[in-house]
Amino acid sequence: MSKVIFIVAEPSYIIRKGLVSLINELPNTLVARELETAQKLIETATHHGADAIVINAELLRELSQADRKTLLNGKKKTAVVTISCSALSHSDEITNISSSQIMLSESKPSVLKKIKGIIYQVDTSEATPENQELSDREVEILKDVALGLSNKEIAEKNFISPHTVITHRKNITRKLGIKTVSGLTIYAILNKIIGMEALE
């Protein structure tokens, strides 16, 4: 799984470091850059391929219309999290840009929850559900494995190399989360890929 890349833009040293430390507590995150001002924010974000920008609300206001547009409609979708002392009003135009808002008074769990929400939102690196399912070829291989055939036998039967068999088996195990041959056999029976009599 690739890391979710953050940029943190906040003038206050204490707040900035606090945010960075919170983000680093979560797995699979990387704070690529810390900024004190909004200058070069867009370039920096593009340069690092940032997935999310955590930014002080006032800095966000300083951005030009054009920059805001780039943030929202750029090639890469970047989530924006605003930091402010109090809740932003709905009419505030930067509310529309922000995926999420963090207030300085918020508790740690509440802030972590919001950051996790962002990670969840931008993280598309993991396989989508449909390619977690076995391909037809994999089902064929699984059937042979479940019936107790060796890698060599499976290779000969399907006209593929033993190395390919091993790759298929690795993928099957990864997709199903089942490691052993006996486990795969039971899976095959439960899913009617092979008959119950294979158990006897």
């Binding site: 199903l176 989360g177 089942i178 490691k179 052993t180 486990g183 039971i186 439960l190």
Partner: peptide, 17 residues
Amino acid sequence: DDIESKLYDINTLFIKY
């Protein structure tokens, strides 16, 4: 290591099926 893997598989199959 096989003993541990099998127990893991039973658990997985039980939860799912």
